[in-house]
């Protein structure tokens, strides 16, 4: 009896607050999506992972984006890239929003300084930027500009703590996104790790987000 109670309690606990979705796969690499209350956490999402080296020895991926729907909490097949079904697309350090040069949606984004938790509503004076591929992006590329710093000498990329991406989805809803890590397993390699590890484990994005489906800017 007690055993049953414990099991029921555990099941209730698991289903009540945590909704674990089955690990999905992109290009044969599995990633995980976990929902905990209003926060969805995505781990190990491949973002154009390294498949080899180009003629001048630089690591390169296949050039394909990972499309993701914040509203539905799912990876979106590349075939749907020209639809409103995705909100963010990831390839290496590039994050694109579904609007203008990137897609047919109402997407947009800007970078807010502060913690994820303390951002309770989208500020009323917010200006959402859009992509102008390949010249500029709503979420700027480059070390120290939007969400990451890259250190040439150690060859490591680290998300900047205290940066929240405020995103307008393809259908015009609001979300806040925090990039957590850029490496497989969610742990940045040590500065003294071999370059081979730093290369093969990079471009696995970890992020968490909250999307407000009722259309308001309150989180």
């Amino acid at each position: 009896m007690r055993f049953l109670l414990v099991v029921t309690a555990m099941l209730l606990f698991c289903f009540g607050c945590n909704k674990e979705k089955l690990p999905a796969k992109v290009d044969g690499r599995s990633f995980a999506i976990q929902v905990s209350g209003p926060i969805t956490t995505v781990r190990n999402l491949p973002a154009d992972t390294i498949i080899g080296f180009n003629s001048i020895g630089q690591p390169v991926g296949s050039g394909r984006y990972s499309f993701f729907s914040l509203e539905r909490g799912q990876w979106v097949p590349n075939a749907d890239s020209n639809t409103n079904r995705w909100d963010l697309a990831f390839a290496g350090t590039v994050i694109r929003v579904n609007n203008q040069t990137s897609g047919p949606g109402l997407g947009g984004a800007f970078v807010q300084t502060g913690t994820f938790e303390s951002l309770l509503r989208v500020p009323t004076d917010s200006v959402f930027r859009v992509d102008n591929h390949p010249v500029s992006y709503a979420i700027a590329r480059g070390s120290g500009r939007a969400w990451y710093t890259y250190d040439g000498p150690t060859n490591l990329l680290t998300p900047i703590p205290g940066r929240v991406l405020v995103v307008r989805t393809a259908t015009g809803k609001f979300a806040k996104v925090e990039i957590l890590n850029y490496y497989r397993g969610g742990i940045t390699p040590s500065a003294s790790a071999p370059d081979s590890v730093k290369i093969k484990d990079q471009r696995f994005l970890h992020f968490r987000y909250t999307v407000q489906l009722n259309g308001s800017g309150e989180f």
């Binding site: 120290g144 990451y148 710093t149 250190d151 150690t154 490591l156 680290t158 998300p159 900047i160 703590p161 205290g162 940045t188 040590s190 500065a191 003294s192």
Partner: peptide, 16 residues
């Protein structure tokens, strides 16, 4: 400290 491993621009107790 060896490296600024947590992405901010300063060295802190959580770095390498």
């Amino acid at each position: 400290t060896i490296a600024n491993s947590n992405g901010n621009t300063v060295y802190d107790h959580y770095d390498e």
